[in-house]
Every structure is written in structure tokens, then in C-alpha cells.
């Protein structure tokens, strides 16, 4: 910093950048574990459900809300009306598929 800057009232911007990043990243780092968990849960839950009901993966919402005492996991799956009306596959085939995965 030059002598001139000491007298000018111009505010330095680098400390602002540093502080904003420190606050933001502390938050994002704490969150990233949770975000990954939600993705894994979504994937595995969908695999199980897709074995029995045809579902559209774009109409699925998985939300993980982390609280201090209790966290909640909300799963919203839109099931097309036709999916539940469709006949279930024969039990034998279903068992074999379940064993294979």
C-alpha cells in the first residue's frame, strides 16, 4: 500500500472479497456432504421403485433438510395413473430380477 492510499478514503475491495468467500465457503462445505447424500438416496430409492412401477425420473423430488435436532427427508414421486393400473409382472420373473441386482 502506498502512502497515498493511507490518505485517500477509497475502500479496499480485496478484504471484502475474502470475507464474503470465507462465509460462503464455510456454508457450502458444510452442505456438500448432505447434497451428495440426497443424490445417492434418490438414485437408490428410484432403482427400487422402478423395479415395480414405471416412473418418470424427471418427476421425482428428493429433499434433505438438515436441522440441528432432527433432519427430514422428503421424497415426492409422481406416479402416472396408468402405471398402477398396469398388471404386475409374473412373480417368478420378478424374483429372478431382484436376485440379479
Amino acid at each position: 500500500m502506498s502512502l497515498l492510499d493511507l490518505f485517500s478514503r477509497r475502500r479496499q475491495t480485496a478484504p471484502v472479497a475474502r470475507e464474503r468467500l470465507q462465509v460462503l465457503l464455510a456454508h457450502e462445505r458444510a452442505l456438500s456432504g448432505g447434497a451428495d447424500l440426497a443424490a445417492v438416496l434418490k438414485q437408490e430409492i428410484l432403482e427400487v421403485i422402478a423395479r415395480h412401477i414405471p416412473i418418470d425420473r424427471d418427476h421425482v423430488e428428493v429433499k434433505l433438510d438438515r436441522g440441528t435436532q432432527v433432519s427430514t427427508l422428503a421424497i415426492d414421486i409422481e406416479v402416472p395413473a396408468a402405471a398402477l393400473a398396469a398388471p404386475a409382472p409374473p412373480p417368478k420373473a420378478r424374483r429372478r430380477r431382484a436376485a440379479a441386482t
Binding site: 500500500m1 502506498s2 480485496a14 475474502r18 468467500l21
Partner: peptide, 16 residues
């Protein structure tokens, strides 16, 4: 610019 405080310093970035 870093010396003037208008760009994050090497230490700033390393610390973060």
C-alpha cells in the same frame, strides 16, 4: 493491484 488491496493477495487465496 494486490498491493493496493484491490485484488486478493496470495495469502488470502491460500488461506481460503
Amino acid at each position: 493491484r494486490a498491493a493496493r488491496g484491490d485484488m486478493m493477495s496470495v495469502d488470502d487465496v491460500l488461506e481460503i
